[in-house]
């Protein structure tokens, strides 16, 4: 099988580019801790309201952990609890969320907080809220007739 010289150049360049992309995201994920949300913990979706931490939705200060706060959300058709929350600027926060019924999305517009809430599983994301402002939370996975009405809000305040 003959491969033209220029095609070899192109394929080497293209493959090298892809390797660079992979290395950048790989190093960022595995060494700098920027993994996509991949929590392995499970929960009984029908008992969410009675189980910690979901029995106390909202922003909770925690001690002795790598992060300062836990921001707990419970999703169900078609709302999030809490419906609005304030977070202090610069807080290192673990966002913890789950769903009581069907699959929902949990997307904070304009940020990297964007995860699926699968029934039976807990979703987590660790981040530092380093910009002030109002951020819209919305459901970005179809969940039924009221899908587009599902919303909440995070206010990052000084």
């Amino acid at each position: 099988m003959h491969i033209h010289k220029y095609e070899k150049i192109w394929l080497i360049f293209g493959t090298a580019t892809l390797l660079v992309f992979l290395s950048v995201v790989g190093v960022s994920a595995f060494y700098l801790g920027n993994q996509p949300p991949s929590c392995m913990a499970t929960v009984d979706p029908e008992k969410v309201d009675t189980l910690a931490p979901f029995n106390k939705p909202g922003l909770n200060k925690v001690e002795g952990k790598e992060w300062d706060y836990e921001l707990v959300f419970v999703a169900s058709a078609f709302n999030y609890t809490p419906g609005e929350v304030e977070v202090p600027l610069g807080a290192k926060v673990k966002v913890i969320a789950t769903t009581k019924d069907v699959i929902h999305g949990f997307s904070v517009a304009g940020t990297n907080i964007n995860m699926m809430l699968t029934p039976g599983y807990i979703s987590e994301y660790l981040t530092t809220f380093d910009k002030t402002g109002e951020f819209l939370i919305l459901c970005n996975e179809y969940c039924g007739a009221g899908h587009h009405m599902m919303t909440s809000k995070i206010k990052v305040v000084e």
């Binding site: 790989g26 595995f30 991949s38 929590c39 392995m40 964007n114 995860m115 699926m116 699968t118």
Partner: peptide, 11 residues
């Protein structure tokens, strides 16, 4: 963006 899958297998 889903829970329940190890990030190494995702990668």
């Amino acid at each position: 963006m889903e829970p329940g899958i190890d990030p190494a297998w995702k990668f």
